[in-house]
Design a protein around this nucleic acid. Structure first.
Lengths: 357, 357
DNA sequence: CTGTTAGCGCTTTCAT
DNA sequence: ATGAAAGCGCTAACAG
């Protein structure tokens, strides 16, 4: 059905030279080819509308000029997830002036092994692992294989790796500090199932914030869906929203502030709460994380701990390309600072703790 | 630096068979290989951690198992553009249960020729052209080349093509009808520079709506940035927001309603308007298009003509895969209906004209 | 049932 | 300066 593509052989024949000469010309091995031949080849190529087959080139050079993006699941693109929208924007910015295209590994993989196979199968020169579970064997395996890999947000707990993240611990601390400063004495953190590094780091920071303020341990309530006696935090909302609302209302001493890392769920919760007879910020102060448009446009706008997601995505992409191209890249976790964007969900008047971006 | 990958030769050697046998086993040519050999090969492959090189396979089969996505510019991912977020979500949904990955053509291309070359260079089996200008030679050239191509939203004005779009004309008509019904007698449409099919179709629909209501021609004011004496509709906002506000205020007879197709700009305009002493909907009714979260979360929420962008993205992806796989696909433009989501930007009480999605 | 063989289209020595 | 030839890792006839 598709026309057979013209090959460099066709060009060679037309230009009356050998195929290897065509290749030399096209790869700009300057000086090695006479100007006359060069022109002849270029013209033949143009006349035939020749376009070099990247697959064949990749096979011989071992380079595809593609970087892979591995989301924790293809579903992350289904909703308006602020985190992914921003990371993706950053990655695009990082590669848009390069010769690399972005390959999103979104096919259906029965397990991480299949994904692993697909990654190292040579479809891309390196990958960006976005929010992959730190305990995921995938990351370690890629590392062992010496496959160029940069982790975003989540990273293996041990061993060297290339990763870009933010200062989660400081962020967790900030959230608690802010709430304490506003007078809250019973603060809950809803922890999602999973063992991501950023979750643990933020929790640690939160505890530190509490300690530094000289508060009692039990001023901070760490919750998981289990505490709410619900299996997951997925829709239908009634599954977790109602239990959470009840849990908060019936808490004693009363919990007056809630930290939810997931913006989208935080928004859903804040906006549904009135149905359960409570309001943000009057009956409950809320702090979310990431501070994308999702938090910004929640009703009421959510105070949120900001991380520079675009910068993180961009940095990771550039780091990966450097790695691929064999440049010197110092391993480790590159961390960006977080800051708090104060809006209306804690009752304070809206203001910004940082320059507008 | 990177380890040499294990090849099927290595597996063959270890299993004590020929390389082609390995290939046959891996490709599941059932029945042709004895179960004993099969197991031996599979075990050897597992032991060596073998993973098939997709580049080599692609070279010989001519199939990459990738579909390309060609945005009108890589910049579309920079902001919270509702249109792209939704289309991307749809495309991901369309391919997530398939064996295809998504390749975003986001490298820097000096011109459309370079992009064209990159597309037909064999990096993907087909492409989704998102909002490419209808007058763009790229589309036509791909068609001529018989390269599997599906256009989203924009499509060539003549000749056969595979495209997925919505019923723009009906949408344009709806917007005008709605405003007329609310009593508006001077309605402006801000047309962005460009000659996209959807723009023209919507404009045509708007005119039809006017005619059908028996209104005078000049009840509809078609504007372009030129009318505002500004070069573009890009930031800084003062470049076009102030002129547009002035234009509306000074219009005579007074323009009382504005249709802006671009949600993001519509939002910016609606929210900045108070700085110029006007308010939506009191001083100006507004209707936008697409009706994504952007319109939904504007202040005030914008009445918007909805198109099922996810469904469009998903349909296009599935259509492309069918095309690639040589299935029968009837050419032409597959159009989905539009409908109007009434919110608060026209002063009416909020209600929905369609089922919740 | 399994092995031999011929490419896929390109890059890259190595001769000439 | 140019061409011949090897080979990247794989698939798919075709033999045996």
């Amino acid at each position: 059905m598709r026309k057979r593509n013209v090959t460099s052989h066709d060009v060679a024949r037309r230009a009356g030279v050998s195929q290897s000469t065509v290749s030399l010309v096209l790869n700009g091995h300057h000086g090695r080819i006479s100007e006359t031949t060069r022109q002849r080849v270029l013209e033949a190529a143009r006349e035939l509308n020749f376009s070099l087959n990247v697959t064949a080139r990749a096979l011989v050079t071992g380079r595809t000029q593609r970087i892979g993006l591995v989301p924790i699941s293809p579903h992350v693109f289904h909703g308006w997830t602020g985190y992914y929208i921003e990371i993706l924007a950053g990655v695009m910015q990082g590669i848009e002036s390069t010769e690399y295209n972005l390959l999103t590994h979104s096919a259906s993989y029965p397990d991480w092994c299949a994904l692993y196979s697909d990654i190292i199968s040579g479809a891309s020169d390196g990958v960006l692992l976005v929010g992959r579970s730190a305990s995921d064997p995938l990351t370690r395996r890629l590392q062992e294989h010496r496959f160029p890999t940069v982790c975003i947000s989540s990273h293996p707990r041990e061993g060297v790796c290339y990763a870009v993240d933010c200062d989660n611990e400081a962020g967790g601390c900030m959230a608690v500090e802010h709430l304490l400063k506003l007078g809250h004495r019973r603060i809950a953190i809803l922890q999602f199932p999973g063992e991501e590094t950023w979750q643990q780091e933020r929790a640690k920071g939160a505890r530190r914030g509490l300690r530094e303020a000289g508060m009692a341990e039990d001023s901070l309530v760490m919750m998981t869906p289990k505490d709410l006696a619900c299996k997951s935090l997925s829709p239908p909302p009634s599954e977790w929203i109602a239990p959470l609302a009840r849990f908060l209302r019936e808490s004693s001493p009363r919990i007056t502030a809630l930290i939810m890392e997931d913006e989208t769920r935080a928004r859903l919760f804040a906006e549904t709460l009135p149905e359960y007879g409570m309001r943000v910020p009057d009956d409950l102060a809320m702090v979310s994380f990431d501070s994308t448009e999702v938090s910004e446009r929640t009703n009421p706008p959510l105070t949120s701990v900001y991380q520079p997601l675009r910068l993180i995505g961009k940095t990771a992409a550039k780091m990966l390309i450097a790695l691929i191209e064999g440049k010197e890249v110092s391993p480790g976790i590159r961390r960006f600072p977080m800051c708090i964007d104060v809006r209306q969900s804690c009752g304070a008047r809206m203001y910004r703790h940082r320059e507008s971006r």
